[in-house]
Design a protein around this nucleic acid. Structure first.
Lengths: 175, 175
DNA sequence: ATCCTCATGTAACCCGTTACATGATTAA
DNA sequence: TTAATCATGTAACGGGTTACATGAGGAT
């Protein structure tokens, strides 16, 4: 059973512990959103589809009067997840970085170039602060999340340094 | 006139020199695809819309019997492009990196972790080779494309190094 | 001749976000 | 008591990819 893009995060998150749709969204925002995000508009319908396909089971566990469905992986779901994780297929690798695009076209308005780089740096500084926050408040029982966080931090720092150096260099060249 | 996402690359590419839809696609693939891509299915309809909005003008310049429409920016198009480049708005920053997602969930199948990292490295090594190819075969009169290429190369190298180091570390810890 | 590149386009589909709607529970 | 958080959902919309269709020109 081939997993759809969003099914990959959903099943992975459930494999890390039974969860509600709401919790899946929280975890995605807190942990993978840097390289893989998901919205409620995808998560809830996808959970239904996964249940139809027999990859997950939802159990009603309301909090008082408040409806609440907790999902578990079925053996088929676990198998599909493992198949995906071990398969040697072409990996999705998409990115849309408007800061980079503006820098690319910055010769159209050259006076703005330094400003473009500063804006890029600001984006990455905010990102770094978020990642550092996660780093602090999380106990890493699992290595996967730890590794991706470290790589995320490393790349972000690299970009910030590059922005700083480039800004300095461009300012020096101006004079 | 607010530019749609795809209109940003299209107008930028035309600002760098009058082009056909086909040429825009070639340039995008060769230069920005690392952080911003576009398909024919977007480019041709978008060029029509931009012409309706008066931001570009298409001129018929066939090659013999072969139809060919070359686009130029109108003053309004140039203005819209400059407005976008100078505006201080929230920047689109999206990414979907399946290699990272697999690494994140690699505790589900821990024996596979090293393999996941190798696959990630392979992706980035291919990417680096492509970027280095562009670096060689291109004369950089313009700084924007040069800067984004350098940053792309730097980040890619950083990721490759991280993968190598992490792989070594994990192998050492195994024993 | 044949194949690659140039060149333009569209239709079906997939996917995903945004905004909205609703309501219970808990913390301040 | 009021605001934040927990919790579930959907409909409209926008955007983008893939696959297909077509054909001319240039190179081998």
């Amino acid at each position: 059973m081939e997993l759809s893009p969003t099914a990959k995060v959903i099943c992975g998150m459930i494999a890390f512990g039974r969860r509600t749709g709401y919790e899946i969204k929280q975890f995605v925002d807190k942990t993978t959103s840097n390289f893989w995000s998901a919205s409620y508009g995808q998560i809830y319908p996808e959970l239904k589809r996964l249940e139809d396909q027999g990859l997950v089971v939802g159990r009603e566990e309301p909090t008082g009067e408040r409806a609440r469905t907790v999902y578990d992986l079925t053996p088929a779901g676990q198998a599909a997840l493992e198949e995906w994780l071990t398969a040697d297929r072409v990996l999705i690798d998409e990115s849309r970085d408007e800061g980079m695009l503006k820098l690319f076209f910055s010769d159209v308005v050259p006076e703005q170039r330094i400003e473009n780089i500063r804006a890029m740096r600001a984006v990455h500084e905010r990102k770094l602060a978020v990642l550092r926050g996660i780093e602090e408040q999380t106990r890493f029982v699992r290595t996967g999340p730890y590794l991706t966080l470290q790589l995320g931090i490393g790349v972000t720092e690299f970009v910030i340094n590059w922005c700083e150096e480039t800004e300095r260099r461009l300012l020096a060249e101006e004079s």
